[in-house]
Design a protein around this nucleic acid. Structure first.
Lengths: 187, 187
DNA sequence: GCGCTACCAGACCGACCGGTACATATAATG
DNA sequence: CATTATATGTACCGGTCGGTCTGGTAGCGC
């Protein structure tokens, strides 16, 4: 019953929480606001999620899957390994230009929750590992000398671009990252 | 009277707030804890800072100056422009290895406060501008072709390394950033 | 002495937080 | 029809938040 055509309570809660958490920061959003936005009763919320922390973890896991899907999209944009690596950087511009862009949600949550319990770090780390593996397998296929090392360097460019795009409020970092990635691939 | 040999109330408040904000996140630290840690009466706090927001801004400005001083240290570590650029990346390892490392405090505050008022972004942006200028002037002195572009690319590496070092909880990003910076300088 | 400033100590306020209790309604399943 | 699961609405709890108020003390220049 919970699945099907109509998005039901739990789904609406996750949607509302994900959006609010991203735009305003996890600790700055209260339960009341989430249930109000989702159009769900308070008790219904606590029926699906024992506590706010559980909701946070569910949202983070969902975000991680979204980022993984985003990465997978890059794969389909090119046929050669090298093209698939650069395709990731091609997609940055569109991401950064989104009106509500606020950086990588997993990194953001890591900062926001960093104080208390390292709650978000495992999700961010899992995604970062996935990014590096995406790069390294394709670099290896392309015959690179040190796939792991270059993959990490490309990852640094990627993360740096997401942060700089947030602070600078512009998509200029995307083109710079792509250009730098090409240089690293040629070196 | 406020200055001199003994660190006085306002100074102790700034010290305590800076440390607590960094280790636990700005919104997660209350006034009560700050004044307790600083050993200062409540009214004394509100005498020096009209509101918590004013304290936050004072701490951020202080952090910005600290980061600027950190950057200036790199300058003294080498004599050539190229060496001064790479010296920044040499210093990363020590920074990342600090036991209480939690990323760049200005970027962290931007994420933590991002929800409400973009309160921290101007401070982070000012520092980022300073970083790029540091790089670009030295690249120009070294006869680089596109100083501005390469400066931005080096900045992406720098920011990316600070984030990855936080998520991965290791200093490996430092060496990778330095190596990548060398490649970008040679390209 | 007087006035001023800096500081301390702690009670107090309204608002909001996460979370619980209770009482109810609906709809499918047996 | 009775049961069960899922949903609703609202009052309520203890705790903490940022911020105010009262009152008192120590040092300094006039």
């Amino acid at each position: 019953m919970t699945d099907g055509t109509t998005p039901s309570a739990a789904e609406r809660l996750l949607d509302a929480a994900a959006r609010l958490f991203y735009t305003r920061g996890v600790p700055n959003v209260g339960i009341n606001e989430i249930i109000a936005r989702a159009g769900v009763a308070r008790m219904t919320f606590y029926h699906h999620f024992p506590s706010k922390d559980d909701l946070i973890k569910a949202v983070l896991e969902r975000r991680r899957e979204e980022r993984a899907a985003w990465l997978a999209r890059a794969e389909s944009l090119a046929s050669t390994p090298r093209g698939q690596v650069l395709a990731v950087f091609e997609m940055l511009e569109e991401w950064f230009a989104a009106p509500d862009y606020r950086g990588c949600p997993l990194v953001a949550a890591t900062f926001e929750l960093g104080g208390q319990l390292n709650a978000a770090r495992p999700y961010a780390r899992a995604h970062h590992d996935a990014v590096r593996e995406y790069f390294s397998t394709r670099l290896q296929a392309a015959g690179a000398e040190n796939p792991e090392d270059v993959a990490l360097q490309l990852h640094l460019l990627l993360e740096g671009a997401t942060v700089v795009a947030l602070v600078q409020q512009g998509a200029a970092a995307a083109a710079a990252a792509r250009s730098a990635a090409e240089k690293l691939l040629s070196a």
